[in-house]
Each structure stands twice: as C-alpha cells, then as structure tokens.
C-alpha cells in the first residue's frame, strides 16, 4: 500500500543551513550583554518605589522551513511568472488568494480546481504605510492595496508601485506584476496603475496635511538611508 512521502525534490534554490547551525552550536542565543538597573515599581503609577532588576540582551533568530500546503501551486506559479487562483466547481466562487477547499457552506468543503488568472484587477481598499516592516522601510511611503483580481470573488493584498500616493483610490484599475527574480512569497507580486488615476476627494486642508505627511516620511527615509 502507498504511504505519504518520502519527499522527492523536483526543483530547488538551495540555502546555507550551515551558518545557522554554527550559530546555534556556538550558543549564539546566550546573552550578549547585561545591565543591573534600578526602576520604579508599585501597584499603581501613582505609588511607585525603586527596585533593582537584572536585564540581559539575548539574540534571537533562526532558519526554518514551511510548506505552502495545498495552495503551493499559487507560489509555484509566482516562481514561473504566472498568477493562479482556485475555482469551486459546485458554486463557481473563484478564490485569489486560493483556497484548496470551498468555504461556501453549501459546498461542504469540496476541493477546488486551479485556474490561471489574468494579471489585471481593481483596488478594493488601500493604505499608505509610513511605518512599514524594517526590511521595507526604505520604500516608505509604501502603498498597500487589496486588489480584486478580474473574475475573482476575494482580494489579494499586495504593494503598489509607480503611483503618487495621493492619487491611489478605490476602484482604480491595476496591472499585476510578478518580480523578475521571484523568491517564492507574496512580495513577488505588486500592482501598477492600468489607467490614469483619479485622486480621492480631499478638502484643501486635508490635501495640505496629506502632502506634508508624505514629505515628512520621505525626509525621514532620505535622512535614514541617504538619497535614492
């Protein structure tokens, strides 16, 4: 009888496991530094008394692997420059992000089928991130959008490029781009405008503040990371 596994590697981008093993073996996680401090403590902020504490600084990091499970095909698609979703053969819902099983109660978790999707969609909602993940801080102000891919019933979150933040708006038609050097996660996907954007309505006072906010963010990025 067939059993699950073993794993057969079909294609691979190898990683350096060794440096992480070394880090662990050498006890890289032991405290790097410490301090004895006196700090106020007490039952309320109005009733504090000094107490002594030892504080250590401990590094933390690891390399781990995870699978994309039954929605792996979506990410394999990104590695191949394609956009995939899934479709329920019973109720016809089209999912992007994909679901391996339909969540419509009537369909009782029937398995969905993979469909290739057009690289086009529409902005469902947006934000402009001025405090992004540390690894993306140099890209601030960073436009984050939820895009409804053409022909689907859910929304794919992603970042947007080539647009003035003040112009991004709900309903904007966008193109979906996949990075030329995909790494195999959602950051490989980004949106760009597919039409001339029409800015949301803002009062002159709101617009002035918005521009000042963006300027402050750009100035911070320039100060922190230098000119582009």
């Amino acid at each position: 009888m067939k059993q699950p596994g073993p794993e057969k590697v079909l294609k691979q981008l190898p990683h350096d496991e060794k440096c992480w093993e070394e880090w662990e073996r050498k006890g890289g996680w032991r405290p790097e530094g410490w301090k004895i401090v006196e700090m106020n403590d007490g039952p309320t902020l109005n009733d504090l008394k000094p107490e002594k504490f030892l504080i250590v600084h401990r590094p933390h990091g690891s390399m781990f692997h995870h699978s994309y499970g039954k929605v792996s095909q979506f990410f394999i698609g990104l590695l191949e420059g394609k956009l995939y979703g899934t479709k329920c053969s019973k109720c016809g819902l089209v999912y992007c992000p994909p679901r391996a099983h339909c969540f419509n109660p009537k369909c009782r978790l029937v398995e969905t089928k993979w469909v290739e999707l057009p690289k086009r969609g529409e902005v469902h909602s947006y934000t402009i991130m001025a405090i992004a993940w540390p690894s993306m801080a140099h890209l601030q102000p960073l436009v984050g959008v939820m895009v409804r891919i053409e022909g689907t019933n859910t929304c794919l979150p992603m970042t947007m490029r080539d647009i003035d933040p003040e112009k991004v708006n709900i309903g904007l038609k966008v193109n979906i781009n996949i990075s030329k050097q995909p790494k195999g996660d959602l950051l490989d996907v980004y949106a760009t405008p597919a039409e001339e954007p029409v800015a949301p309505k803002r009062s002159p006072e709101e617009l002035k503040r918005f521009r000042e906010d963006m300027e402050k963010t750009r100035a911070w990025v320039k100060k922190t990371f230098g000119p582009k």
């Binding site: 991130m129 984050g144 970042t159 959602l186």
Partner: peptide, 15 residues
Amino acid sequence: PFEQWQGMTFPGLYA
C-alpha cells in the same frame, strides 16, 4: 501566507 508575508502590518489592515 497571504497577509503576513507581503508587508502588511496590523495598522495597515485597519487602515
């Protein structure tokens, strides 16, 4: 896979 690894923060989601 779809919200944590594309740069969206919690303030981002509520935004």
